[in-house]
Amino acid sequence: MIEHVLAVVAVHDIDSAREWYEKLFDRPADNNPMPSLVEWQAAPAAWVQVTVDPERAGSSQFNVAVEDIELFVDAARSRGIDFGNIVDANKGVRLSTVSDPDGNSVSAIGGFREHY
Rank of each mutant, 00 (worst) to 15 (best):
A17M: 07
D53M: 09
S105I: 10
M1H: 07
F72H: 11
E39W: 03
L95G: 03
M1S: 10
G103N: 05
G103H: 03
Y21F: 15
E22R: 11
A46N: 00
L24F: 09
E67Y: 07
G103M: 08
S59D: 14
D15A: 12
A57P: 07
I81G: 06
R27A: 12
A10M: 09
I86T: 09
N104K: 04
A29C: 14
D26A: 15
V66R: 01
A10Y: 14
D88E: 15
D53Q: 13
R56H: 15
N31L: 15
T51R: 14
G92Q: 09
I2V: 11
A29K: 03
V38F: 11
D88T: 13
L6F: 08
I86D: 07
V5G: 01
P33Y: 08
H115P: 00
E19D: 14
F62H: 03
D100F: 06
F25Q: 03
E3N: 04
T97A: 05
E67W: 06
V52I: 15
A45N: 00
G103P: 04
E19G: 07
A17E: 07
N90M: 03
A65I: 02
S107C: 11
D26T: 11
A65R: 02
H4P: 00
I69M: 08
N31T: 09
P35G: 13
F83H: 04
D30I: 01
I109S: 02
R113P: 01
N90Q: 08
S16N: 10
W40Q: 00
H12F: 12
N31W: 12
G58F: 09
S16Y: 04
D15V: 09
I14K: 08
S105D: 07
P44M: 00
R113T: 05
D82I: 02
V66A: 03
R113E: 02
A42T: 01
V8S: 11
F72M: 09
A108Y: 00
I81E: 06
V93Y: 07
V93A: 05
N63M: 13
S59P: 09
Q41T: 13
P35F: 11
V9N: 02
E19Q: 10
A89Q: 12
F83V: 03
T51F: 12
P35Y: 12
H4D: 07
A75S: 15
Q49D: 13
V106Q: 00
S96C: 02
D88L: 11
R56P: 06
G110H: 07
Q61V: 14
S16V: 13
S99T: 12
V8D: 06
S60Q: 11
V9I: 14
E67I: 08
F62D: 01
V50K: 04
A42L: 01
L6A: 10
W47K: 02
A7W: 01
M34P: 04
Q61N: 14
A108E: 00
S16D: 11
N31Q: 15
D82Y: 05
P33Q: 09
D30A: 04
R77Q: 13
